[in-house]
Nucleic acid binder design. Sequence first.
DNA 1: TTTAGCACTCCGAGCAAGCGAGTGCGAAGC
DNA 2: GCTTCGCACTCGCTTGCTCGGAGTGCTAAA
Lengths: 350, 350
Amino acid sequence: MMENEVDGLDKRKAYILATVVYEYIATGEPVGSQALTQKYNLGVSSATVRNEMADLEAGGYLEQPHTSAGRVPSDAGYRTYVDALMSPEELGADERRRIRDEMRDARAQLDEIVEQSSRLLGRLAGNLAFVTKPQSDTQSFRYVQLIWIAERSGIAIIVTSLGVASQSLFELRNDLSPDDLTRLSNALNATFAGRLLRDCDDRSLTALTKSCGFGDDMAAAVRAAFIGARTQEQPGISASGAQHLLDQPEFRDVRKLRSILRILEEQRTLYDLVADAFDSPTASVKIGHELGSEELADLSLVTVPYRFGERAVGMLSILGPRRMPYARLLALASGTAETLSERLHDVEVK
Amino acid sequence: MMENEVDGLDKRKAYILATVVYEYIATGEPVGSQALTQKYNLGVSSATVRNEMADLEAGGYLEQPHTSAGRVPSDAGYRTYVDALMSPEELGADERRRIRDEMRDARAQLDEIVEQSSRLLGRLAGNLAFVTKPQSDTQSFRYVQLIWIAERSGIAIIVTSLGVASQSLFELRNDLSPDDLTRLSNALNATFAGRLLRDCDDRSLTALTKSCGFGDDMAAAVRAAFIGARTQEQPGISASGAQHLLDQPEFRDVRKLRSILRILEEQRTLYDLVADAFDSPTASVKIGHELGSEELADLSLVTVPYRFGERAVGMLSILGPRRMPYARLLALASGTAETLSERLHDVEVK
DNA sequence: TTTAGCACTCCGAGCAAGCGAGTGCGAAGC
DNA sequence: GCTTCGCACTCGCTTGCTCGGAGTGCTAAA
């Protein structure tokens, strides 16, 4: 848990910082030097701890709510703790099994599986959890079926690797037969099946449609269908566990709660929070002001990607008070992500 | 606003009750006899009002939080107010227009329209609003397309009148050709198109499939596809506006809030709240204990159906403190329901 | 450099007093 | 006979106060 020098802190300072953060996470009370020496065997007296704490405060790792109160970690303090001081946690075998069992309850439908994982994670983590649905443009195209409704109208149905059927109605200028549509469907399937949805670009779609002898209107309909499948520009988000936030003493203040509820409903904002974590292949933690909003300044966010095959397609996140058990939540999120990734194969259209 | 006798109350008692409820809804403070006579021109003195209030309390219409506090309406008081005393409200032309305009922002996709209407209603009503998605079994069946994937597997896609495509994968015991599937699709469409989904019963589906020369496995796949479309046994619910509840003084107490957030996440409970309103063709109001749960005892629920064609297919609801402006919220819910009903035609598969 | 001792600060719980709003009731008034 | 006035009483809420506890920082000694 400790090297000789961490982030410019000597061994003892680092240990004291770790202990303060640990204790504060556990109790939620500002931690004072005496309490610390009594509860943990630090090998030095409270006066020494006091001096060290004063240094840590000067270095920006700790803060004092007011004179004559104990110390509380600052963003930087948490950051150092998360990056260098805490001991990572692993889930036990029985916990893994429990997660797997509960995930099995969901039917093999994409939405249900995602929702189930957000519910599960929210409950296990005792915090607000949310899960982005798989990004549609990272999915691959499986089938399109153009269905004849009337001489000049039809429905296009697109099936992707995760079975998400998107549908769009279209109207044409010229009469067509059901056979025409079948022919075009087959041609599209032959050419594009297996490609990533984002690689089914407008130009190739148009070219293929025309080469089958259809006009601009049909080409536009085909493009629209693919755009509809691809352009759910920001994936849906399933959130769960907001009620747990009420248990946290930091939410006595109702205004904070309101910010959170508002954000929950604006999926846009919620999505922005995790959006940049998309680029990182591993877990990421954002602490306090790192979330980029004063409203969220005393919250932290743990984000873990889940995969479909090799590709990261979505994110599981936990939003909670800065004072959250980071190691534990990272373990829970990773465990859930893993199980979610596995279950995605149950809905895969092969 | 007033007959001579209302619910066993003489004219003056009824008027005083109405005024108390009105004032309490406006201020949230227990209302006393003096305050009432000062603010409203009752034509009698506070002492008389006091006597009347004592009677109303004895009759169960009012309650006293404690001696030396003003009166507060009881469930029965609100009930009488809603049923007989309040003057119904209508939306102004400009408000209607605003609602219509905002609903236009949503794309012509069922889910988006429903979500938009819950967002809109939540914002306008300043309370938690939720909207059930159209019950699938009241929708009519439009098209089924069985898509060939491999010799022994395929996808069945069902399109209903509101365009909700449900899809299900199937596996068969015997090889089939794409043409076989098209033939069966056409047969199913010819027979069932236009029927209510709930009238596409297992027996007729099986019979038709077999009469086309397919085996038990194919019949089972067809049944499963229709069941999947029909059996979303409890429709999804889109909720919005929880943060407004925080503005209400009655939610200072955090426990109440927790109950609500919990209920919000358990769609089951939320659905149960409006389920019996489904039978009523008009607006319904549930007050306090009428919601059937101690947790919700100081809330009220306004529910209004929306239609697709002639048929009521879903509900818009507003959940808020018992102390809610009933007439206004009923008007808002009705107005939104109307606009939602109109917009449903934009997604209709004709 | 660490520790012991000490004066000082500040928060928050607990208590008492005073205020204000409201009630109920008996007696007087229309 | 209903309505009103006057009055004593109740009760919760706010304000101000005290006091204890926890914690700090500083100084001097080990």
